[in-house]
Simulated assay, not measured.
Amino acid sequence: MRKSDCFYLGKIAKKFSFKGEVLAWLDTDDPGYFEDLQMESVFVELNKHLVPFFIESSRLHKNDFLRIKFEEVDSEEDADRILGAALYLPLNMLPKLEGDKFYFHEIIGFKAVDERLGDIGIITGVNDNSAQALFEIKKGDIEILVPMIDDFIVKVDRENKAIILNTPEGLVDLYLG
């Protein structure tokens, strides 16, 4: 399984018991979704490779963590080997989003259309390394950064692969000026 075919689920944060159980922090707004998913396995990143680990049991722990018992991880030493490792699942296991909610990877390649300015470019990425996530939009040689603010997003048009925006006057004009 290639990492590009997967999404980041979270990471193994700490050991839970002497029997090899671990607590995984899940990078999601709804950790409970993944408890009910009845996952048979997850991919654990070890030495830059995704390795399938089969799950014996899992359940939510204090709302933010998933307590997991993997097959063949039966001791604290076994758990130490996977501590801090990232967890991945195939993209097809993501819950479907509707309306104006979207996954960052889903909108790459979408057209960015401003209601006032028209087509302002193609979304090439999302920068979520700052306090406010930003659309990275490419128009020719120009990179335009638009904050991902709900008030700016008018519509996610999956059928036409476009995001309709209503940006304040001057924001995009700065880049195109």
Rank of each mutant, 00 (worst) to 15 (best):
M1R: 02
R2Y: 05
K3L: 04
S4K: 12
D5V: 01
D5F: 07
C6R: 11
F7I: 15
Y8A: 00
L9H: 15
K11F: 13
I12E: 12
I12Y: 04
K14N: 14
K14H: 11
F16T: 07
F16P: 05
S17P: 12
K19D: 09
K19H: 10
G20T: 01
G20R: 05
A24R: 02
A24D: 08
L26Y: 05
D27L: 14
D27P: 01
D29I: 04
D29R: 15
P31E: 14
G32V: 11
Y33N: 10
Y33G: 02
L37G: 08
L37F: 04
M39W: 03
E40R: 14
E40Q: 10
S41L: 11
V42D: 06
F43A: 04
E45F: 07
N47I: 03
L50Y: 12
V51F: 03
F53C: 04
F53Y: 15
F54T: 13
I55T: 00
I55E: 05
E56D: 12
S57L: 06
S58Q: 13
S58F: 02
H61N: 09
H61E: 13
H61W: 15
N63C: 02
F65V: 03
I68Y: 00
I68W: 07
F70P: 08
E71Y: 12
E71V: 09
E72L: 01
E72R: 14
E72H: 12
V73L: 01
E76P: 09
E77P: 01
D78H: 15
D80H: 06
D80V: 06
D80Q: 10
I82D: 04
L83H: 12
G84C: 07
A85P: 04
A86F: 07
Y88E: 12
P90G: 02
P90D: 13
L91W: 02
N92R: 07
N92M: 09
M93Y: 12
M93W: 03
M93F: 08
L94M: 08
L94R: 15
E98Y: 09
G99C: 08
K101C: 03
K101Y: 13
F102T: 00
H105Q: 13
H105R: 15
E106A: 09
F110D: 13
K111T: 01
K111Y: 13
A112D: 10
V113D: 12
V113P: 00
D114F: 04
D114M: 06
E115A: 09
G118S: 05
G121C: 06
G121D: 11
I122H: 03
I122P: 09
I123L: 07
I123T: 03
T124K: 14
T124N: 09
G125I: 04
V126H: 05
D128M: 14
D128V: 06
D128K: 15
Q132W: 11
Q132I: 15
A133Y: 13
E136S: 10
I137H: 10
K138G: 08
K139T: 11
K139H: 10
K139M: 13
K139G: 03
G140Q: 05
D141M: 04
E143P: 05
E143T: 15
V146I: 07
I149F: 10
F152A: 02
F152G: 00
I153Q: 01
I153W: 12
V156F: 05
N160M: 02
K161C: 07
A162Q: 15
I163R: 14
I163P: 05
L165Q: 00
L165A: 02
P168K: 14
E169W: 07
G170Q: 06
L171G: 00
L171P: 05
L174N: 13
Y175P: 00
L176P: 06
G177P: 01
